[in-house]
């Protein structure tokens, strides 16, 4: 005899409630008619945003001397050779589906963002983070931590070898599940180009239910968070290949006379 899953007590926020809010936010965005690529910081279906977004408009600063138009630089000491291969950070092989994620980091004009730090972190194949606060009852993998970094190459390219993360539950509402994703942190040539985002895997059935992905209300922009499976990037009897290019926003550093 199987045990029935726990039923949600009255008054608990259901997926249907969240679905309605996601639909309402998308409708409001379309009615507004003003293109917005980034998520709104006030996005009610993602409950944690409620008390953590400013209510005043951002102050637009046009200052050609602003320190923010330059940014930190990183180098050989900020990464090690093993950082880009998350499957080789322990004695044994991690469990799961070995993948490579490859792409280029560009600015809005299509110029490569070279020599900049890219950091990633993710859950293991079972959907569990190596983090004390993740109490999802899925196994930790002693051979997988799920954190990596690299510097982008001269053409802006990067490549990670890792395992495909699993989806995981969270407590935004009853029966809330995050689609599989890898967290990305990127630096550009200016502090204004800083980006933290998440990469998703094509065809995940959880997309429509997830208020974090859906916080990007523009459907074309949302699709840009989904990597492409690319068979030519797969390696025979070894790994599956995904491509994900990243375009940084924000004013880029002004070109100096020496640069062309």
């Amino acid at each position: 005899m199987s045990t029935a899953p726990p039923s949600s007590p009255a008054g608990v926020l259901t997926q249907q409630d969240i679905d309605r809010e996601i639909a309402a936010a998308r409708k409001a965005y379309q009615a507004e008619g003003v293109p917005r690529q980034h998520p709104a910081r006030d996005y009610p279906p993602y409950r944690s945003s409620t008390l953590r977004h400013p209510t005043r408009a951002l102050v637009s600063l046009r200052d050609p001397e602003a320190a923010e138009l330059r940014g930190p630089v990183f180098g050989a000491t900020d990464v090690t050779d093993l950082d880009a291969d998350l499957t080789r950070q322990h004695h044994g092989e991690p469990l799961g589906e070995r993948i490579t994620v490859t792409g280029r980091v560009l600015d809005r004009a299509g110029r490569p963002v070279a020599g900049q730090l890219l950091e990633i972190w993710q859950a293991n194949a079972s959907g569990r983070y190596a983090h004390q606060r993740d109490q999802h009852r899925a196994p930790l993998d002693p051979n997988f931590t799920g954190s990596g970094r690299c510097l982008t190459a001269a053409d802006g390219s990067y490549s990670f070898t890792t395992i495909k993360p699993g989806p995981y539950p969270w407590r935004n509402h009853d029966n809330a599940w995050r689609p599989a994703h890898i967290h990305f942190s990127l630096f550009g040539t200016a502090f204004t180009q800083r980006l933290v985002t998440q990469m998703y895997f094509p065809g995940d059935p959880l997309f429509r239910y997830d208020p974090i992905l859906q916080s990007v209300t523009d459907s074309a922009a949302r699709e840009r968070l989904v990597a492409a499976y690319e068979h030519d990037l797969s390696r025979s009897e070894w790994s599956l290949g995904y491509r994900w290019d990243i375009v940084l926003d924000g004013p880029a550093a002004t070109l100096t006379e020496e640069e062309h």
């Binding site: 980006l195 840009r224 375009v247």
Partner: peptide, 11 residues
Amino acid sequence: EHPLTPAQTIG
């Protein structure tokens, strides 16, 4: 010409 990659929460 290149549309930007949207941000997501750091989680």
